[in-house]
Structures are given as C-alpha cells and as structure tokens.
C-alpha cells in the first residue's frame, strides 16, 4: 500500500532560490527550486528512504520534488520554493483580483522513485509558436 499524506502547500522565496533566480537554467537553480520541505513527522509518516523523491499532486497538477526536512513546519504543511516546480500545483483562478492563490493549495504527497524533471524537461513540450 502506498502511504500518502494530505497537506497544504505554501510556496515562497528562499535565499538559495533567490540567489540563483537570475540563472534559471543553472544546476544551482534546479537544486534550490525543485525541492520541497515537510515536517519531520510527515516525512517519517511517508516512510521515505534515501534516494527517493516525493510526488505532490493538487487538483491542478502533479510534480516530483526532492524532499527536505524543515523543523519550522507543522505537520500538514509542505513548503516549496517559488518557481516552475511549485507552480505545477497552483491553479489559475484569481478570484477576480488578478493574483492566483500561490499559498494554501491542498495537495496529496506520496513517495516515488521517479526522478525530478530538469528545467528543460519541465518545459519540454512547449517550443514556441508559429509567428
């Protein structure tokens, strides 16, 4: 049986993500922005082993991320640095104010052995339009 945890996703700035955000195609940015943080309790509950990743799913999409522990997080919260990986989970609705709800997205988290998509893979199926 696959264990999963229901959580609320918060995305936001981190120092590492910020320092790499003008070099988005770099390995640094990939490392900083494609991870997610959970409480120790949630990580334990998921029973994650070294080398495994987390698959996070919201009603808007799914993304695979490397796991980290953050003692500042309560169980039930998952933090993802702002960026294209986090935004796979965010919906387009702005409630009429222009701004999507980047924080407070309901997600389900489970362990996976699939790898995290690199930035070019993440955007792989786009390729510009005819002009």
């Amino acid at each position: 049986m696959v264990v999963s945890v229901k959580a609320i996703m918060i995305s936001g700035r981190t120092l590492g993500q910020g320092a790499a955000c003008e070099a988005k195609m770099s390995p640094d940015y990939f490392r900083e922005a494609s991870s997610c943080s959970l409480s120790q309790a949630d990580l334990r509950g998921l029973g994650i082993s070294p080398g495994e990743n987390l698959e996070v799913t919201s009603e808007h999409g799914t993304v695979i991320l490397t796991p980290q522990e953050d003692r500042g997080l309560d169980p039930g919260l998952i933090f993802i640095p702002m960026g294209p990986w986090a935004n796979c989970l965010v919906g387009p609705d702005t409630s009429g104010c222009g701004t999507p709800q980047y924080k407070g997205v309901h997600v389900e988290v489970k362990v996976t052995t699939f790898p995290v998509l690199a930035i070019r893979e993440l955007f792989g199926r786009f390729g510009g339009t005819r002009t």
């Binding site: 988005k24 808007h60 999409g61 702002m82 960026g83 294209p84 935004n87 796979c88 989970l89 965010v90 919906g91 387009p92 999507p100 980047y102 955007f123 786009f126």
Partner: peptide, 11 residues
C-alpha cells in the same frame, strides 16, 4: 520570467 512564476495552466 512568467514561465517560471505563473501557474502551470497559464504558462
């Protein structure tokens, strides 16, 4: 860089 910062469906 909206491709990074917009929700996926908007990208």
């Amino acid at each position: 860089d909206p491709a990074s910062n917009f929700p996926r469906s908007i990208v």
